[in-house]
Design a protein around this nucleic acid. Structure first.
Lengths: 125, 125
DNA sequence: CTAAAACCTGACGTTGACGTGAGAGGCAAG
DNA sequence: CTTGCCTCTCACGTCAACGTCAGGTTTTAG
């Protein structure tokens, strides 16, 4: 398939796909005219990339990790890399949980009738 | 205290503190010479701001949320805002958990001896 | 009083993952 | 052959949370 279809299938912009290739996260075959062609499983690859981006990983880090996923590269260094990133994600999750608890506390106190609520309106929708 | 001490106490840069003020997240009294002075509990405020930034909230969003925390503002709109951000954080946590599971799967398979490991080196550190 | 810190206000630089044209070429249909 | 859509490669624009440098003022230590 060509780049437009891959974009449509994955929900990622054409620009982003070219960017992934520039970052060497995605490869493509070129037609004689220079147009990119992708195999069907490229969509899975794109989804994986998106997942890792969503986890806050940088292109560079993803570039380092992908060989581990692709070729099941299995060296002490690659395992250390995988674990380091997993731990970084754990860390982020902890931060987010802390922030959520903070907000929950505020929400709870704002909903308890004991708070210094001015009780202006009483919209019980 | 002055800005340098607040920075030292909170571990946040002086520049960042000025930026927070610019974004109206933090206020200060000015001395006759124009220098910023903060009360002791400013450190708590800074920590709160940092927590919310760490949760991925923007200055603008934090600006909207702070009145709810400060004055216990309690309107339907403010409660909706708090919940919306809490839900957004939940969403992010889910994404991160998904990414972590993805990595964990790779890690597990890379550690199982059944994987197509070329078994080049055998460093058992 | 004086030198050294610490502080002040601009204002431009940085980083990452793209957005957004500009201008030109590829490709199936009629 | 031509219309029209898709694609190509530059290459500058964006946005947020600061970093950093410049040039000048305030506060503090001696």
């Amino acid at each position: 398939m060509r780049i437009g279809e891959l974009a449509a299938r994955t929900g990622v912009s054409v620009r982003a796909l070219r960017y992934y290739e520039e970052q060497q996260l995605l490869t493509s075959m070129r037609s004689s005219g220079g147009q990119r062609h992708y195999p069907d499983d490229a969509a899975d690859r794109v989804h994986l990339i998106q997942t890792l981006y969503a986890a806050g990983l940088s292109s560079r880090t993803i570039l380092d990790l992908l060989p581990c996923v692709d070729a099941k590269v299995n060296t002490p260094a690659s395992r250390a890399l995988l674990r380091a990133e997993r731990d970084r994600i754990d860390q982020r999750i902890s931060e987010l949980v802390a922030a959520r608890e903070r907000l929950d506390a505020v929400i709870t106190s704002s909903e308890s009738p004991a708070s210094g609520c001015t009780r202006v309106g009483l919209a019980s929708a």
